[in-house]
Design a protein around this nucleic acid. Structure first.
Length: 874
RNA sequence: GGGGGAUUAGCUCAGUUGGUUUAGAGCAUCUGCCUUACAAGCAGAGGGUCACUGGUUCGAAUCCAGUAUUCCCCACCA
């Protein structure tokens, strides 16, 4: 059967993934081997695969597959996150399309819809990961709302509450008027927007025509004003001390207060104070005992305190109130102004600071060990520079608002038995809560009186337990799995969620396992398009990963995405990279076709050139293996990939295979072929973590394996390298390249055999002469004591090489070439001599450096002498 | 406003504690080849004042200072 000329990935991918699954290679159970554990950053349960996931999961798979081959018990735990806000928003949206309003449903009815949605769309992304080749232990697939997982979330809430680390409080929080929930500070993105600064005049109470002018970006909140604030030292407004002002439209009289918080330079120096709608104003309100007038409903419309604007959306109200202020002569002027406004990370709605009763985690003490463990290197960050960002956040950590006014998630285990701030208890079940409530209140409370908190917990309050709870480390402390797999080894994630997730996992690990959750954190960059834009659905600039896989093969796409993505760097992605990856798999495929095509003749003696070729490639392989290992160990994945790529393409295909290749339709000797297959197999091992499918495919095509698969083959062991073989080959390579150059420049076809004479001037090892003869397509290589006239010539390592021509050569061209070389050598000599003639250099430089400079000088002198002699002889 | 990075070939990046020739790789480019493994290929070549200025040093892409450009993170100036 004819082997196809190009590699066709689809079949191989399906076949081998099914085979790996069937053999259970991805599944891990604790045993005597060293554990290597990775937990996947759980994607949103209803999400679909995007390029960021591709990058992230390819890296994880590379690490996991290599660890598996290194004989470690590799366990990659997959799973999904319930993604409270995102999923609830999707369900609400879907119901709305069907004409159902969330507010018409009971909590249970809504949750039934949500679970239906989750069952329908959940896990699509995990199926997509399989196409990429992800070797996850699918039997361990976890979900943050699995029953046992949920139990651990509630346990942690209760425990932290008991420790006094969780409290309930009335605070200014970030309110998302679209999702109708509070958000943590981390879920708010600040963006610069072009807005207007409105200068509005307020009449001084009791005066005929005295006014003051404030500047505001949010005139609609005028209705909630409860004071005007000026700087106590502001000379312009000294006459206003102790006076009152009349709020336009509302016609309320409010005090003029003094506080140094006001910047005199900004706007007019007069600040309107609206404690209900601004965090700073709220603080001012508390300090000066001001009234808090909340004029907004939870959905961002004006409420009954907003007079005739009631019912209008806040942005609509801004426009209409601008008009009214103008019409009535209150609006002094408007000017363009750029300010920063917070937007919800999920819904993109403008955040409204809102006073509400929420649950918080006190982060100060909890975060101390988490900071310590990163700064002291117990946990390594790749790239290391992100430690700075981490430290900065941890040192300024604020309390974490964990309650969300949503239904999809873990319902807060708090139970209320009255209206007072303290009329609640925290307990896992209604029964326990009842007991506690009776104790706390001192009266006989009935079960019906007990109302559970309606809110759910922030999603990250469950994901922060991920490395522990996927092994049930909280519900079954010290179980064999948590003891074996925890702490996990490497975490691969995006820097964007360093605070959301990474920092909090470290906190949870230190608090609940008394140990870090992972040893290394690899931060990927952002996948961008060619123009440097972030890939996003809105821009439509993100290729569909599955389509890429269909077009280039999973291995090609994996190569394409890894080829230039050092840790922490953004990845400017272009599908041409996948093309390069695909070309690489094709190169491998054809290398196999070549080797596979050779017939063995047992009587044939092994050519000298093949003996040398094998010696050299073995040394070369090991030299590069050490480098590749080092790259992997330092998480320099793209460099490990590039080293592997060059080892295969340049060293193995372009040099080694050409060196041992028999003439067309000639057989090969058995020894060489057998060695070559072994070397090829070793290369495939290096390739497997990067391109698992083709590696497995060729591994089996190359030899009968008796059920041994490359996925569990042993990663090659480093054997010490004979450096002299490598350096001798480098010189031979240089000779061959020079011969090829002469062919190109003189239009000599490769088929035409040439003769080569060598005039030995210095040290010369002849080990690779047979290789030079073969690769240069020479009739013979002879040594001579004389220059050969009418020759093309070149110098390698101070030895002269001559290729005689039938006809005379171009003397002028030769002269020019030699003169150029001479100039270079002289320039070089000069730079070396500058050092050697410098007394300070000679006295301060280390001996080794001086010796090496002296050698450079001697070499240069030798080369110059040869060149000059050649020039003179022309 | 505060903090942290980055700047090396057209593009994407390496470049260990300052000293392996006068700085490397892949891709792209150019030239010549459809040479029976591969044109998704082969052989060869060109391409850089290491952002700028100054300093330290016998010696700087590498260390220091300043400048420019740029990216990221944090932050409540209305």
């Amino acid at each position: 059967m004819e082997t196809p000329k190009t590699y066709e990935p689809q079949q191989a991918e399906e076949k081998w993934y099914a085979h790996w699954m069937e053999k259970g290679y991805f599944h891990s159970e604790p045993d005597d081997r060293e554990a290597y554990t990775v937990v996947i950053p759980p994607p949103n349960v209803t999400g679909i695969l995007h390029m960021g996931h591709m990058l992230n999961n390819t890296i994880q798979d590379v690490l996991v597959r290599r660890a598996r081959m290194q004989g470690k018990n590799a366990c990659w735990v997959p799973g999904t996150d319930h993604a409270s806000i995102a999923t609830e928003a999707k369900v609400v949206h879907k119901l709305r399309a069907e004409g159902i309003k969330k507010s018409d449903l009971t909590r249970d009815e809504f949750l039934a819809h949500a679970f239906e949605w989750k069952d329908k769309h959940g896990g699509i992304i995990l199926e997509q990961l399989k196409k990429l080749g992800a070797s996850c232990d699918w039997e361990r697939t976890s979900f943050t709302m699995d029953p046992e997982y949920s139990e651990s979330v509630l346990n942690v809430f209760i425990d932290l509450y008991k420790k006094g680390k969780i409290y309930r409080g009335l605070r200014m929080v970030n309110w998302d008027p679209e999702a109708l929930t509070a958000l943590s500070d981390e879920e708010v993105m600040h963006k610069e927007v072009n807005s207007k600064l409105f200068h509005v005049r307020y009449k001084i109470a009791g005066s005929d025509d005295d006014w003051l002018t404030i500047a505001t970006t949010r005139p609609e909140t005028i209705l909630g004003d409860s004071a005007i604030c000026i700087h106590p030292e502001d000379e312009r407004y000294k006459h206003l001390h102790g006076k009152q002002a009349i709020v336009p439209i509302a016609n309320r009289t409010v005090p003029i207060i003094l506080d140094e918080y006001v910047e005199m330079e900004f706007g007019t120096g007069c600040l309107k104070v609206t404690p209900a709608h601004d965090t700073n104003d709220y603080e001012l309100g508390k300090k000066h005992n001001l009234e808090t007038i909340d004029i907004l409903n939870s959905n961002g419309t004006i409420n009954d305190k907003g007079l005739h604007y009631q019912g209008q959306d806040r942005f609509e109200a801004r426009k209409s109130i601008e008009k009214e202020l103008y019409d009535k002569g209150y609006l002094v002027k408007t000017e363009d102004h750029i300010n920063k406004v917070g937007f919800s990370e999920r819904t993109n709605a403008a955040i409204e600071p809102r006073l509400s009763l929420q649950w918080f985690v006190d982060m100060k003490e909890l975060s101390a060990p988490a900071l310590e463990n990163v700064m002291n290197g117990n946990i390594n960050f790749y790239p290391e520079k992100l430690k700075n960002t981490y430290r900065h956040w941890m040192e300024n950590v604020k309390d974490w608002c964990i309650s969300r006014q949503l239904w999809w998630g873990h319902q807060i285990p708090a139970w209320y038995f009255g209206e007072g701030m303290e009329d609640f208890v925290v307990a896992k079940t209604r029964e326990e809560a009842l007991k506690l409530a009776i104790d706390k209140s001192g009266r006989n409370i009935t079960e019906n009186e007990l109302k559970r908190d309606e809110d759910v917990l922030d999603t990250w309050f469950s994901s922060w337990l991920w490395p522990i709870s996927v092994f049930n480390g909280l519900t079954q402390p010290n179980n064999p799995e948590i003891k074996y797999y925890y702490p996990t080894n490497d975490l691969v994630t995006a820097p964007e969620i360093m605070f959301f997730w990474v920092a909090r996992m470290i906190i949870a690990g230190c608090e609940y396992m008394d140990d870090i959750p992972f040893k290394n954190v690899y931060y990927t960059g952002i996948v961008r398009d060619k123009l440097g834009r972030k890939m996003s659905k809105q821009l439509g600039n993100s290729p569909d990963p599955i389509e890429l896989i269909q077009k280039y093969g999973a291995d090609g796409v994996r190569m394409g995405i890894l080829i230039s993505s050092p840790a922490g760097n953004d990845l400017p992605f272009d599908s041409s990279q996948c093309e390069q990856g695909r070309n690489f798999t094709n190169k491998l495929w054809n290398a196999f076709r070549l080797v596979d095509s050779w017939e063995v003749n047992a009587d044939l003696e092994q050519p000298e050139s093949s003996v040398r070729a094998i010696e050299w490639f073995e040394a070369r392989f090991n030299e590069e293996l050490a480098i590749i290992n080092e790259h992997f160990d330092k998480f320099k994945i793209s460099e490990a990939l590039m080293a592997t790529y060059k080892l295969v393409w340049t060293d193995f295909c372009s040099w080694y295979l050409e060196m041992i290749k028999p003439g067309y339709q000639h057989p090969i000797d058995g020894k060489t072929l057998a060695r070559t297959k072994l070397l090829f197999a070793d290369l495939l091992k290096l390739i497997h973590p990067l391109c698992p499918f083709i590696a497995e495919e060729l591994w089996h095509l190359l030899a009968e394996r008796n059920g041994e698969d490359i996925i569990v083959a042993e990663w090659p062991h480093f054997k010490p390298v004979d450096n002299s073989t490598l350096s001798q080959f480098t010189l031979a390579e240089e000779v061959i390249t020079n011969i090829r150059n002469i062919r190109t420049k003189n239009n000599i076809a490769n088929k035409v055999k040439l003769e080569l004479f060598v005039k030995k001037n210095g040290e010369l090892n002849t080990n690779f002469d047979s290789v030079i003869v073969k690769m240069g397509n020479l009739t013979h290589l002879d040594y001579t004591f004389d220059k050969i006239p009418n020759s093309n010539s070149f110098i390698v390592d101070q030895n002269e090489y001559y290729i005689p021509f039938g006809e005379s050569i171009d003397v002028e061209a030769e002269k020019e070439k030699l003169t150029k070389e001479l100039e270079y050598s002289k320039g070089f000599l000069l730079s070396v001599r500058r050092k050697l003639e410098n007394e300070k250099f000679m006295s301060s430089a280390p001996e080794q450096v001086v010796i090496s400079e002296r050698k450079k000088e001697a070499d240069a002198l030798g080369t110059i002498a040869i060149l000059e002699e050649k020039l003179a002889g022309l």
